[in-house]
Amino acid sequence: MNPSVHPSSIVEDGARLGAGVSVGPFCHIGAGVALGDGATLDAHVVVGGRTRIGARVRIFPFAAVGLPSQDMKAGLAEGALTIGDDCVIREGVTINAGAEEGTRIGARCVFLASSHVAHDCRLGDDVILSNQVLLGGHVEIGDHAMIGGATAVHQNVRIGAQAFVGGLSGVEGDVIPFALASGNRAHLFGLNLVGLQRRGFAAERIERLRRAYRLLFARDDARVFSERVASLAHDFADDADVAAIVGFLRAPATRPLCAPRAR
């Protein structure tokens, strides 16, 4: 199937449109853009930079994707952006390009209205940003994480896979995988139990994660945190979920850890 482009839209020379691409009225597609098979731009969509958009991605009106970052140090240099297959980008969303490898977004992600992804972010698969979520530069989010509406995430923060951040939060610390965080400034409330149950985690699997969480943040444990992490790695050596938490905690980080609030 040949691409379908509305006569009012502009597709610059050099842009590549896959089979079955549909471009609605008043869109602008830059010369460095590649749209995967079956991608749809509804209307009034701008896509620029060195942007690669996967198959069957749908972009709703007034979204701006792949434009230069708002990083004052970078100026308005053209950057790169990669978006995986089957993503949904709703009205007014802005996703900025990044330097070098650029901003990278996995498959089946959903960006609700007016959410913002800054330069050089890394998002895994099946990530959901609710309305008006703001991600600073170099934020990393793991697979199946969900961020509640009107939440702001500080630059360089990492949010682990399967985590949930409640709405109206200000996140300035790293959130471990499988956790539930909320508040301004955000702190941990425990595990993302509802999300894990909805994704089919067995009761035994969730209980192991709960034991690991309690050991990690036990208030009566006098050991330094690195010793607790080492103990967790030893005691749950055959548990892939706990290994994911340990790996997250041992990975290089520039932000503090989001932890439970002290009583």
Rank of each mutant, 00 (worst) to 15 (best):
Asn96Gly: 08
His28Cys: 13
Ala63Leu: 03
Thr103Trp: 05
Pro7Gln: 14
Ser182Gly: 15
Pro252Trp: 06
Asp174Val: 12
Val139Trp: 02
Leu216Asn: 05
Val11Gly: 00
Arg214Ser: 13
Ile29Leu: 05
Leu134Gly: 12
Gly32Trp: 00
Gln197Arg: 15
Ser226Gln: 12
Val246Leu: 05
Cys109Ser: 06
Gly200Thr: 07
Gly170Glu: 03
Gly18Phe: 00
Gly142Met: 13
Gly38Ala: 06
Ile95His: 09
Gly49Pro: 04
Cys258Leu: 08
Gln197Asp: 09
Val21Met: 00
Val153Ser: 04
Glu207Asp: 15
Ala77Cys: 00
Thr151Tyr: 06
Ala181Gln: 01
Arg58Ala: 13
Arg199Met: 04
Thr94Ser: 14
Ser69Phe: 04
Asn96Met: 02
Asp13Ile: 02
Ser182Trp: 05
Ala63Phe: 02
Thr94Cys: 13
Val46Ile: 14
Ala233Ile: 08
Ala203Pro: 13
Ile206Phe: 06
Ser8Phe: 08
Gly106Tyr: 04
Gly36Leu: 05
Ala179Ser: 15
Asp235Asn: 08
Glu101Asn: 13
Ala244Lys: 06
Val23Tyr: 03
Leu249Thr: 13
Thr151Val: 10
Leu168Glu: 03
Ile176Tyr: 11
Leu232Phe: 05
Asp241Ile: 11
Asn192Cys: 01
Lys73Ile: 04
Phe236Met: 08
Leu232Ala: 02
Arg16Phe: 03
Gly148Ser: 00
Arg211Pro: 07
Gly102Thr: 01
Asp126Pro: 08
Ala19Asn: 09
Leu191Lys: 01
Leu112Pro: 06
Ala253Pro: 04
Gly18Ile: 03
Ala64Ser: 15
Asn131Thr: 11
Ala202Trp: 10
Ala80His: 14
Gly102Phe: 09
Phe248Val: 07
Ile206Gly: 09
Arg52Trp: 14
Arg250Ala: 12
Val23Ile: 15
Leu67Phe: 10
Asp143Gln: 02
Phe189Gln: 14
Gly148Tyr: 00
Ile83Gly: 04
Val171Asn: 04
Ser115Glu: 00
Gly190Glu: 10
Ile159Gly: 02
Arg211Glu: 13
Leu123Lys: 13
Gly14Val: 01
Leu134Cys: 13
